[in-house]
Amino acid sequence: VPPGLTPDEIPTARRGASKELAELFDVTMGGAFEAEERAVPGPGGAPDVSLLICRPVAAPAAPLPVIYHVHGGGMILGHNRAGVEAPLDWARELGAVVVSVEYRLAPEHPHPAPVEDVYAGLVWTAGHAEEIGGDPDRIVLAGASAGGGLTAALALLLRDREGPPVIGQLLMYPMLDDRNDTVSSHQMAGVGVWDRTANDTAWTA
């Protein structure tokens, strides 16, 4: 993503090298996982939600903990393979199933579409945990950047709607503050990959 990402550059950014690299990433981690894509019911009246499900090959028969991963990308970029390397590393070490959810992107699908997709994917995951080798009572939410913000919102929805229980959430540099007026937001203006303008573009979308 070039510095100064503006709304008209979103389509170009979506076709960029990061998308190609993510699609080339071996989600089996050299055969350590069995991976499959599943289309599961989305929110009412909305399209199905795509889940990337990765199960450890050498795991014991007992139900495994589940890491429910929400990808980053400023709400405007990404898919369920983006950023999944870290959860897969944790899962390989700890013996866990990874479920990475794909959600509709803004600005074509503004709030609440992304978080409703993420919620629908979690409801399916909890309801079918045993089918995918997971334990419905040991689900952890994880997300970075936009995924971190959606993960936090998902936890609140689960509380408010009395949805499936989760045992924790891991928010990595989460997208939580739409004001874009912190000291660091000014320091990052025009610098690096995700700067003040990109942040404004994402929140506005």
Rank of each mutant, 00 (worst) to 15 (best):
S145W: 07
E93N: 12
A155G: 13
E9W: 02
W194R: 11
G127V: 08
L88E: 03
R138A: 09
H71L: 14
G147S: 10
S145H: 07
L150C: 10
G148H: 10
H79Y: 13
E162K: 10
V101M: 05
G78P: 03
T182H: 13
H71W: 04
A39W: 11
L94V: 14
A62C: 00
L24G: 15
S100A: 15
A144G: 12
E9S: 11
P63H: 02
D200E: 15
A106E: 02
F25N: 08
A126C: 09
G78V: 02
L5H: 06
L171E: 04
R161V: 03
W203P: 07
D26H: 06
D48Q: 12
N180I: 08
P136Y: 00
A62M: 05
D178V: 00
L105M: 08
M75C: 05
P43E: 07
S50M: 12
P87S: 05
L21W: 05
L171P: 08
H186Y: 13
L154W: 06
M75H: 08
I132Y: 00
H109I: 02
G44C: 02
L94F: 06
A22I: 01
D200N: 07
E36A: 14
G95I: 08
A155D: 10
D200I: 13
L5E: 01
A106D: 04
A96K: 12
L105A: 02
P110D: 06
A155N: 05
L154A: 06
L122G: 11
D160M: 02
G74L: 01
S18P: 06
R55W: 02
P65G: 11
S50A: 14
E34Q: 13
I10M: 01
L52W: 04
R92Y: 03
Y68S: 02
H109E: 00
H69A: 14
I132V: 14
G163D: 07
G83R: 10
E20V: 15
A126Q: 06
A59H: 06
L176Y: 04
A106F: 01
L150N: 05
R159W: 11
Y173A: 15
H69T: 05
D48H: 14
D181H: 13
D200K: 00
T204F: 00
A144P: 02
V98N: 05
A13V: 13
T201G: 15
L170V: 15
P11F: 04
